[in-house]
Every structure is written in C-alpha cells, then in structure tokens.
Design a protein around this nucleic acid. Sequence first.
DNA 1: CGAGCGATTGATCATAATCAAGCGATGTGG
DNA 2: CCACATCGCTTGATTATGATCAATCGCTCG
Lengths: 235, 235
Amino acid sequence: MRLSSEEKTALHKLGSRRVRVYAPREDIALQGDSPVGVTLLLSGYACRYRILEDGRRQIVALFLPGDLCDPHVFILREMDHSIGALSAAHLAEIDRDTILDVLERYPRITRALWWCTMVDEAIAREWIVSVGARSARERMAHLFCELYARLDTVGLAHDGVCDMPLTQSELAEALGITPVHTNRTLQGLRAERLVTVKAGRLHLHDFDALAEAGLFSTAYLHLDHEGASFDTNEA
Amino acid sequence: MRLSSEEKTALHKLGSRRVRVYAPREDIALQGDSPVGVTLLLSGYACRYRILEDGRRQIVALFLPGDLCDPHVFILREMDHSIGALSAAHLAEIDRDTILDVLERYPRITRALWWCTMVDEAIAREWIVSVGARSARERMAHLFCELYARLDTVGLAHDGVCDMPLTQSELAEALGITPVHTNRTLQGLRAERLVTVKAGRLHLHDFDALAEAGLFSTAYLHLDHEGASFDTNEA
DNA sequence: CGAGCGATTGATCATAATCAAGCGATGTGG
DNA sequence: CCACATCGCTTGATTATGATCAATCGCTCG
C-alpha cells in the first residue's frame, strides 16, 4: 500500500528472506538498541511506543500489514523508542546492508521509500492533531476511520469490518486517555450505533457518520497518488 | 545542525539563491497547495500547522534557523498541512528540480536529507508523547528544553537564554491546551523560578530542573552523531 | 475450581476548558 | 497630543472532560 506491490516484492526478494513470528506482546526492537535494519510487517498489528522514566507508555504509531517498520531508523545510531507486536505477527527482516545497497542502486525503490516515509510522517502529524486538538470521542472515531481506511487499501477491510486486536488498555495508550475512559468512550460510540469491537474485530456501522464524529478526512493518507512518484520514473 | 554546515552551504549554493522575507503571521505554504520545493529557514521561527474544519488549530512542528521546511513533501501531490512564519523570518528557496537533481547526483546530501528527515520524525514522535502523556506543565517544560537544546546546537542559545517569539496563544496551539491555561502554567513555572519569557526571549534559570519537570532527555534529538552517517561515506 | 486478565461500573477528584472581564503597552487617526 | 482601538497578557468564577480509586463480572485456561 505505501509501497506498490511490485516494489515490496522486490524488496522482499532482495532481503534475506528470514521471516520471524512474534507473539502478541513481544517486543521487536527496544529503545536504546542500535537499529538493525528494516522489517516488513506481513501480518498482524505492531506499534511504535515510548516509555517515560516513570512508566507511562504512549503508543505513537500503529503498523498494519504491508507497512515497513523503519525504512529509516537504520541511519540513526540508537533507537529512541521501541517497537512491539500487538497481535501475533509475521515480519520479514531485511538487513542493513541490503537496504544500503538497494538505496544506492535502485532509485525507484529509494523514491518509494521516501514516499512511504512521507506518508508515515503525515500520519504522525495527524496523530499529533488528534491528541492535541480532538476530544476523546473524536480521537477514537478518527483512529478507527484511519485504521479502516488503511486496511482497506491493502484489501484487509470488507463490509465495514476489519481486524483491531488492541485491548482497551492498548487503545488507551494510543489515544492518550485512561483505560477506564476508553471503555466509556467506546460504549458511547457503540450506543450511537457507530462502531462495535468484538473478538478483535472492528465493525464500522456508519463510516461517514464516524468520519464526521472524528473530523476525519483521508487527505493526509495520500491514497490518491499511490506510488505515482516512481511510476513515472524509469518506466 | 540537522545538516552539517558544509552540506547546507552546498545546498544553498546549488539552489536558486532566492531569499524571501516573511512577516510574523505570514503563511509560507497552505494546506491543499501542491508542494513547490524545499525551503531552508535562515532566521526566525516558523511552524507546521493544521486547521480542522471547525477552526481548531494545532501546531505540529516548530522550525528553527537551520531547519529545512520540507525536505520531502515535494514527493506528495498535495500539502496536508500549512506552513507559516511565527516571527519575522528569512527563507532560502530551493526549487523542486534542483532538489531532484541533487538527490540523484549527490548521495552524501541525499543521506543527509534522510538523516534530517529521521530526526524530524523523532521530534514528531516526542511531540505525540508530550500531548498524549504529559501534563500541561510537563509539556511546556519539555518544549522549552527542546527549543533551547535545538537552538544551542546552532549557536543561538547562550547562558540559558534564547529566542522564543511565540505569543501565549501560539504556545497554546503548540501544546494542545488553551491560551488561558498556558498563561497559568507559564506563571507556575515562573513561580518555581524555572523559566521566564520576556520580550520574545526565553530565560531558562535551571535547565536540569526544567528537564526533570518535563521528563526531557536529549536522546531523541540524536545530537550525538551529527552527520556521522555521511561523514564516513565518500570522504 | 481457582487464578488471571480484560471489560465494566460507580463514586469522587483534578486538570484543564470555558466564559467574562480588566489591564497595560503600542499605535493610529482626528 | 490625546482618544481610542487593538493586541497580548492576566485574573476570577464556573464548568466539564477525563483521571483516579476501587470493586465486580465474565471468560479462558491450567
């Protein structure tokens, strides 16, 4: 989705084809580690999170199947945050050298990586807008819309239903509110017949109404132009 | 600072040397525009911000002298946010073609741009942590520490003093709190003899105490390794 | 069957929002 | 040169959103 599928295949083929399976709460990389390379999330949910000295935890990004968990950090010396699996997850590892090699030799893929990084940044900015300017209800509605929209672009959403394996506590850490308040906010949305979460699946009963409730617009996902920047390049 | 100074000079020389001066509230680029290129902030404060349909405004990033306001967005078709000056500001414009050319021909600069983008992302993540997990007081303390640290790396901070031209309302939009609460929080920090803001200048009376109050650590700024990733490359 | 986890509920508290007004400096036009 | 308008800052009173504390329920699993 961020990368065109041919691009991903290329990357996947190029990388050592090691695939690792992670369990629901397992950490993939830790704050303080030196970044080892890039991983492509093949299935499941993962996240970036940060833990403050006093234990507070904030999830700062969610990874969905097809996402690259760090097209970049390999440039920095030390991870300033951690990455962990939220559900059972499969990840393909692409080592640092391969990436560096690819960056040098395949301008199309390099551009694709840029593009994908830009979209990640746009999502991060919107996340700031959510926690900074939206109410709890709006944030939750917005997040659900985003998840649905992103999963939809990779064919993992159908008829208003998609995976959403986070516990309410994890949702709370993503939204920047407490678990208790998460529960109540979710009940509110359910009472309005907008969404239900059951067995790790999210049911959107009225996407448009939910988008309105969350002041959601797809603009920042830049879905319009998928891969356009490199399609026009070097055939 | 994000770019080594030689790198910046190179970029500057390469780009059309157009320098534009902006007035305090002037917009530099608007949501919906198609990105035109890259601009290097030479002096003053600027910011990225996003306006929601109902008028709420959230500042999602601050640009300080030496920062590139968009090493990237030129890849996307449409700006999902706006960029505006917060003080009088000088910007050097580098057009899209020059950038694309440079990206293709100068791997060192390309890597430098990556590096700088990674740091921007790290800052954005920390911003999410602030609005999502820190109290108003902590956020403010954190922001002041960050600004001081960033300005310090470009030689614009001395003896606990640096520029900070934002009005309290603008500060509020950055911190995700109301102007009134910003005022009170600021008074609190002042009462604790941690900071004062006067005439657009920020006075940190006790950086360490402020860092503790804001759970601030410089790790995410990745100051340690300035430019290391390309210094080792191609001599 | 009991342990443990996640979801849920209730009661109370606190942080921050909202509303409204006033202050002080700056700047402009009559 | 003064009158007044504006803007940013400050203050007070009140409200509300969300946090905190504490307990219960239901389910799965060993």
